[in-house]
Amino acid sequence: MSALTQQSAQNIAGCAAPDQSAPLPASVDLNKETVISGVVDVDGQPVSGAYVRLLDASGEFTAEVVTSPEGVFRFFAAPGTWTLRALARAGEGSTEVTAAVGQNTVSVTLSD
């Protein structure tokens, strides 16, 4: 519990990227938030340490996170069309998603 409390306090204070594999902070209201999350994989295996960018409908950078040891990323966006672009030593990949309020799950597969 203390870790969660610390996590959400840190989120409010600054731009620190939350631990990507941690459970959603208790303060996150899925009736309001548009969460886009998923796994980066290559050949069916999750890729940790991949850089994942969230691009808006015009292709402009919105945010970037690094995947967790389980290959997981997470963004807090708004309803609409977004592109996820992943970059790692194993290759690159991108996926488009049309997100709605709540949890939106999407995977990004890398290729050379």
Binding site: I12, P25, K32, E33, S58, F61, T62, A63, A78
Partner: peptide, 20 residues
């Protein structure tokens, strides 16, 4: 900031909860 923060659609970068 990102275009969505500039226009007022988001309050924070999208790797953070939009709770402010």
């Amino acid at each position: 900031r990102s275009p969505d923060e500039y226009t007022g659609r988001l309050l924070a970068p999208a790797h953070l909860p939009q709770e402010q």
